[in-house]
């Protein structure tokens, strides 16, 4: 069967369309937030203190939208953030939670800078943090894949630990990596 270049599962899309087109949809209870993440996800801690360890991101089964959902939930758990977003190479938001548009809007330029940093260092590594307002630090980590560049933007009151940023970079790679075509 020819591979879908959009990674989407036509059967799943059709089912979603059926649900969206159905005249009457039974009222269902809201899905618990943890359902987006791995089954063994710990309950988010209210603590604002950095945690000693970062649990690795477990890629859920399903399409890229399920993976992105899970990635946002995971980042929310491992870092104490005001908001988080994922963008494509052009800085256009693929998904976001709790961030204002200004943070997403400036990410396009910052991602370009980040790309320059990676080129300059000759490595795929490279992270960026910038204070965009008092107690508002925007962190950006990016990856390069065969499908294009992706970045995660995180806005929080404090600078994030290196372990957290490395974890997010690894999680991004797992979400959008070349092994993840359906």
């Amino acid at each position: 069967m020819a591979r879908s270049i959009s990674w989407t599962d036509p059967g799943k899309l059709r089912r979603l369309l059926e649900q969206a087109s159905r005249d009457e949809v039974p009222v269902v209870a809201a899905r618990p937030a943890a359902a987006n993440g791995p089954a063994s996800s710990p309950t988010p801690s209210p603590s604002t203190r950095p945690r000693p360890q970062v649990d690795p991101f477990v890629v859920p089964a399903g399409g890229v939208d399920a993976r992105v959902d899970a990635l946002l939930s995971w980042i929310d758990r491992v870092a104490d953030l005001q908001g988080v977003f994922i963008t494509d190479a052009h800085g256009l938001a693929i998904a976001s939670r709790g961030v204002s548009r200004d943070a997403v809007a400036i990410s396009a330029q910052l991602i370009e800078t980040l790309r320059g940093v990676r080129l300059g260092l000759g490595s795929g590594e490279g992270r960026l943090a910038i204070a965009i307002a008092p107690a508002r630090i925007l962190h950006l980590v990016g990856i390069e894949t065969a499908w294009g560049d992706f970045a995660a933007g995180m806005v929080g009151a404090e600078f994030l630990r290196d372990e957290v940023l490395a974890g997010v970079q690894d999680a991004l790679a797992r979400t959008f990596g070349d092994n993840n075509d359906e």
Binding site: S6, K12, L13, L16, D65, D88, I94, A95, G148
Partner: peptide, 10 residues
């Protein structure tokens, strides 16, 4: 990418 985000819209 646009098609990948369509499920979220639906």
């Amino acid at each position: 990418l646009a098609l990948r985000t369509l499920p979220t819209t639906l």
